[in-house]
């Protein structure tokens, strides 16, 4: 597996503890929702970076008041057809104001990276031999968007508006 974060190939600095019986003593960890609920105090006392893994049937409203504790939230795609996490990502970014790393994990296809980026993911766990090249292809596939979403890109409607303003200004 390879991790692309903010357009760069990086090393994953979080230890995936989601399946472990015991939490590691030190270092950044990624924990499950159950672990977070059960070991919340212990995890906060560690004073290490903290990541949370949410499965596709775990709505982020469960942790909406806690998002500021997490440096990383990973949303799982159990199959590429399961699109729930696209909505979760937008809710985390737009409604719950999560500003940390939002990572797509699981069955993540090249062709989906563009959509994932648009809804607010900024890192991607890819099963690929050329992750960086794949990311660059996917990220550059489109330059026009109609919908206002979490990535804050200007929509076609906004671009049209600005174009018309410019035309008006230059005509004066």
């Amino acid at each position: 597996m390879a991790l692309i974060k903010n357009g760069l190939l990086v090393r994953d600095t979080f230890e995936n503890a989601a399946g472990l019986d015991e939490l590691p003593d030190r270092g950044a960890v990624l924990v499950s929702l159950d672990q977070w609920r059960e070991h919340r105090d212990q995890l906060l006392r560690r004073r290490e970076r903290l990541g949370l893994l949410l499965l596709s049937d775990q709505h982020p409203k469960e942790i909406s008041a806690d998002v500021h504790y997490f440096d990383l939230i990973a949303l799982d795609f159990p199959g590429f057809r399961d699109g729930r996490a696209y909505s979760y990502a937008r809710l985390l970014r737009e409604r719950f104001k999560f500003t940390g790393e939002l990572r797509a994990v699981g069955d993540v296809l090249l062709e989906q990276l563009h959509y994932m980026h648009r809804v607010g993911f900024n890192s991607f766990d890819l099963d690929s031999e050329q992750p960086l090249a794949e990311w660059k292809t996917a990220a550059g596939e489109f330059s026009v968007w109609y919908q206002p979403t979490a990535d804050g890109r200007a929509t076609a409607t906004e671009l049209r508006h600005w174009r018309n303003e410019r035309l008006r200004a230059s005509a004066m």
């Binding site: 590429f80 057809r81 399961d82 699109g83 696209y86 909505s87 937008r90 989906q112 563009h114 959509y115 994932m116 648009r118 809804v119 489109f142 968007w145 109609y146 919908q147 979403t149 076609a156 409607t157």
Partner: peptide, 14 residues
């Protein structure tokens, strides 16, 4: 039509 075209949230509906 413009709103739903390549809408990133709704490309993988049930």
């Amino acid at each position: 039509r413009q709103w739903y075209t390549l809408h990133p949230e709704f490309a993988y509906l049930p």
